[in-house]
């Protein structure tokens, strides 16, 4: 995925670029609106991640110029302005998604991938990690000698872990991406859900070397152990 990141705050741009690069994507960075429009004249990124409060030309003006030129480039707005009015304005001018700051890079990457896939007409019906296959339509996880259906929460959580195997997710990160809540409810919902998934895939874990690991005090990750031989 070829990403154009338009963000004036260098320290934010820094970790976003590193995150995308670590996930195997190419990222170009522009720090103001004019630079972004100039870049678009010469390049064809798959998606533009756009901050709203930019010097020289605001994010909304950049978005308007892009849409006025007739380009169907997916645009994901990244902003600290969360007012309903701002969000609606973004969508009104043709944004495809709106990610509020502060955000998790993993979530940003996941959303960007969804937008690019949607734009290219691609739809991944399954997510596969080793012998584990997650069916997005049936909401079930299967392995060579078995399968189990999941509840919507269990499915969302497992999908999050399977999309980035080996990546450690904190409870808060899971809450935000699975429960869609950006606050700590001070309950053990994440742990309960992880336990339920673990119980369901218990029989497959030992046989196929894919497991959900809990890192004490840090979070959870999907671990894939290389098969011997």
């Amino acid at each position: 995925m070829n990403v154009l990141l338009v963000e004036d705050e260098a320290r934010i741009a820094d970790f976003v670029m590193q995150g995308f690069a670590a996930a195997g994507h190419q990222v170009s960075h522009c720090s103001d609106g004019e630079q972004a429009l100039a870049h678009l004249l010469q390049h064809q990124p798959d998606i533009m991640i756009l901050d709203l409060m930019l010097p020289l030309q605001s994010g909304i003006e950049v978005l308007r110029s892009v849409r006025a030129s007739g380009r169907a480039l997916p645009v994901l707005i990244l902003s600290a302005k969360l007012e309903l009015e701002d969000r609606l304005k973004g969508f009104e001018f043709g944004a495809d998604d709106y990610v509020p700051k502060p955000f998790y890079v993993e979530e940003l990457i996941a959303r960007a991938q969804v937008l690019v896939a949607r734009n290219g007409g691609a739809f991944e019906a399954t997510v596969q990690v080793g012998p584990f296959k997650l069916d997005r339509l049936k909401r079930e996880v299967s392995w060579p000698d078995g399968s189990v259906s999941l509840s919507s929460r269990e499915y969302s959580l497992l999908e999050l872990l399977m999309r980035s195997p080996g990546t450690l997710f904190s409870r808060q990160q899971i809450l935000q991406q699975v429960w869609d809540i950006n606050f700590d409810p001070h309950t053990n919902v994440v742990d309960v859900c992880i336990q339920r998934i673990k119980r369901k895939i218990e029989s497959a874990v030992s046989a196929h070397g894919v497991s959900i690991e809990s890192v004490r005090g840090v979070g959870y990750l999907l671990k894939v152990q290389p098969r011997a031989g």
Partner: peptide, 19 residues
Amino acid sequence: SHELRTPLTILRGHCEQLI
């Protein structure tokens, strides 16, 4: 909202990167 969320974004981003 802007002045607080921007440093928090940087803090969270770099912290997660470190982790």
